[in-house]
Design a protein around this nucleic acid. Structure first.
Lengths: 263, 263
DNA sequence: TCTTGTTGGATTGTCAACAATCGTCTTGAC
DNA sequence: GTCAAGACGATTGTTGACAATCCAACAAGA
């Protein structure tokens, strides 16, 4: 346990409070500025899980993360509960928590849910009034995407742009609940979804699809936007399960709950 | 605080364990038989919320449910967290928990998500192989539904049959994750969704839709099944928001977080 | 009268210790 | 050599007390 993280700002505050609650940009209503301890811990852990610092199936004990973050087991426990809500952690009663390890079937299930939900999202964006403000940004990002697609070396930037477009669309939906659901689902499959756009051919095809989506949104054609979104997600589903199948073939030791890999 | 519920079976067990873990019917794998205290408490509370014993917006203090169920605040707190995951309880950091109070917009959002998810569910049922076993049950229930629709007095039984059909379909999906998502969403809108089938005319139309759905499933026509499912949920959405609008008109005091309604 | 700072009560957040449970290891018999 | 039963160690579940925070009522000033 090398890194003893100190994140307890917000407690033990006796300082004159120099830069407290920056009054600048309009923050969202009702969102607490001072995040609670479990939330902060959960955020850190989520980062690590998505980074790959924790591998799937790995066990996570309450005590160990409690000592690492210098808190009691209570907040550590709640942090795990929080991550369970997002699907990043799986908790078995009286048997502890571990990093969620999805089977190929489960990954496919999530992608299929994402497909219809992304369809709904893009349809709602295409049919809402506020899309006028969104379109310029969206077009700019798609143009950047087209540029990246032409240069094979810009793979990282390409992926980043796709993520950015998705963020844009997530924020644009009038259906707030949908965007949070989608964020959670995307996080769950993040580990598996990045590698669908490997070949230049695939990318060209994908760019074309994004362009068609933008066109549908501009025209207010919700049904068309929905169709395109679904197509796209279903294709990344196929890529993901292909990837997973390959991975399973190489390292078939998909370890289950037992007493291994505790770090 | 009249009813001091005793649900602490499973602890303090020194008895010879007469009927422990009934070894009969094949239970689901990996589902713990001995549910934890928070889960039991959450189940009881969920019941009350859905019954209407707790009204929306009502505050729920940890201490009070702790004393009521004769446990410490820890399990009470976790029970609330569990209910928050299902959307039945809203928790604000350091400001406590309350029964979720959905605005008309939020209800609509949930129904729209349910629409596409139900579409996916019924499509997947129509396209899966196991639907052969399902069809007889489904047809029987729909027949019962048709009978109930003819007799206005059987309103309660009609609603119950619709719920039963939904349960059947939820269980039939090969996508396990989808069924749990749907269960959660249905629970969240349960309070608002029952009253869409008030008039005999509506019921007749609804029965017809269910019959068309069964036909589509039998034929393996996934696209058609999806269309029908969406139509259905979107219609109940309209009924629900109409109901909500009427309710808001009569009692406009939609109370928010503050210090009211503590029991 | 309206605004602004202060104080008090109530409620949630956190902690450390105890109790219950689970998995594993050892022991013994067949 | 294999399998079953029991004990041990490790980990989670629960508890009661303490600390931090928030809300509301009250008081003082413009």
């Amino acid at each position: 346990m090398p890194v003893t993280d100190l994140l307890k700002r917000g407690r033990a505050r006796a300082e004159p409070a120099a830069s407290e609650r920056a009054p600048s940009a309009a923050s969202h209503a009702l969102e607490p500025l001072t995040r609670t301890l479990p939330e902060q811990i959960a955020a850190r852990l989520a980062e690590r899980i998505l980074n790959g610092a924790y591998s799937p199936g790995e066990r996570v004990r309450e005590e160990s993360i409690a000592t690492e973050f210098a808190v009691s087991r209570g907040p550590a426990r709640e942090a795990l509960r929080l991550l369970e809500k997002d699907g990043l952690i799986t908790i078995l009663a009286r048997r502890g928590a571990m990093v969620t390890n999805l089977s190929a079937d489960e990954v496919r299930e999530i992608f299929e849910i994402r497909a219809v939900l992304n369809g709904l999202r893009d349809r709602s964006v295409a049919e809402c009034e506020a899309r006028k403000q969104l379109l310029p940004l969206l077009e700019a990002e798609v143009a950047r995407l087209a540029q990246c697609a032409r240069v094979p070396a810009l793979g990282e930037q390409y992926v980043e742009t796709v993520l950015q477009i998705n963020r844009l669309l997530n924020r644009a939906t009038p259906n707030r609940r949908l965007s949070s659901y989608l964020a959670s689902l995307e996080q769950q499959t993040a580990r598996y979804s990045r590698l669908g756009l490997s070949t230049p051919e695939r990318r060209r095809q994908s760019v074309q699809r994004w362009q068609r989506l933008v066109k549908a949104i501009r025209a207010g054609d919700g049904a068309q936007a929905e169709r395109i979104a679904r197509e796209r997600v279903l294709e990344s589903r196929d890529a993901a399960i292909a990837l997973l199948a390959a991975k399973v073939a190489t390292q078939p030791g998909a370890r289950q709950p037992s007493r291994i890999a505790t770090t």
